[in-house]
């Protein structure tokens, strides 16, 4: 009696326990560290830009625009040729610069409802994943929403130009100074300060100083001096206290807050610090 119930329990447990863990494991590669968050950001684009996108390899999801990996994109345009099938809805999006084929999988009632609202000739905002399929580029769309405020059209194209400027400028600076990291994304709601990691040292210095006050500011200013940036080990806490003539506990507070803002980092030990503005 006892043995049987234990056996049953084990069977149920091993089955139940095993399945989810297997599911997590198979999902893992999609979240590998190689795919950083920058690469997955939503990039505002025109169809013209997509048509000129450079396919970096045979990998079907590997496009480059302005030197930046393109995965998720945002487009605004008119919907045409909507065709409903059992498992998906396909349509053509015309944003005035060109036309692109789009597909939307319809898995759940929510998807069906969202697609039912749409008719040909409507202005929509589309979020999707750019994919190459049989040599053609197409969008696997995961959100299609009708525009309610037509200012979004001008706004979207302004956004495209901004993101283009941003990424091309970054690339030029990168080529010049080998500064790592790019910011492919330009979300509409991101305030301009969201673009702080400008690789130009001058800019980042100026930007980073915004909102940094008092002792924090003098500590950061000290660490951002070219001579300090050049030092491999960074600057010792005591040196900061002496040079700035500030008590050590105040220096500690400043270091803590600057470190949490990501403006400085500890180097060989917790006594030595460097500015994140690299030299």
């Amino acid at each position: 009696m006892y043995g049987t119930s234990q056996f049953d329990g084990n069977a149920a447990f091993s089955g139940g326990g095993f399945m989810p863990s297997q599911a997590t494991q198979t999902a893992d590669p999609a979240f590998s560290p190689a795919k950083n968050r920058d690469a997955q950001a939503l990039l505002p684009l025109t169809v013209k830009q997509i048509s000129e996108a450079f396919q970096a390899s045979d990998d079907k999801a590997n496009f480059l625009i302005d030197g930046v990996d393109v995965n998720n994109v945002k487009l605004v345009g008119m919907l045409f040729e909507k065709t409903e099938r059992v498992t998906d809805v396909s349509f053509v999006l015309d944003d005035g610069t060109g036309r692109i084929d789009c597909h939307r999988w319809v898995n759940e009632a929510v998807d069906t409802k969202e697609m039912e609202l749409l008719s040909n000739g409507m202005y929509v905002k589309v979020h999707g994943h750019l994919k190459g399929f049989q040599g053609k580029k197409q969008l696997m769309v995961y959100s299609v929403r009708p525009l309610t405020d037509y200012n979004e059209i001008a706004n979207h194209f302004a956004d495209c130009m901004y993101a283009h400027c941003y990424n091309t400028r970054i690339r030029k600076l990168q080529d010049a100074s080998q500064t790592p990291g790019h910011m492919p994304n330009s979300a509409v709601n991101t305030p301009s300060k969201g673009y702080q990691p400008t690789p130009s040292n001058h800019f980042s210095v100026q930007y980073n100083m915004d909102g940094v006050k008092g002792i924090d500011k003098s500590v950061l200013g000290y660490l951002q001096q070219p001579s300090c940036i050049a030092r491999e080990k960074g600057v010792h806490r005591n040196e900061l206290a002496q040079q700035l003539n500030v008590p050590e506990n105040k220096i500690l507070e400043a270091i803590e807050s600057l470190e949490s803002e990501g403006l400085i980092y500890s180097t060989i030990d917790e006594y030595h610090y460097k500015s994140t503005a690299n030299g």
Binding site: T46, K48, T97, N151, A154, F157, A158, C160
Partner: peptide
Amino acid sequence: CYNNVCQLANGDFKHLF
């Protein structure tokens, strides 16, 4: 705003359009 986009789309950023 729309007018500015018109000008930019025919100017420096023509190649995006």
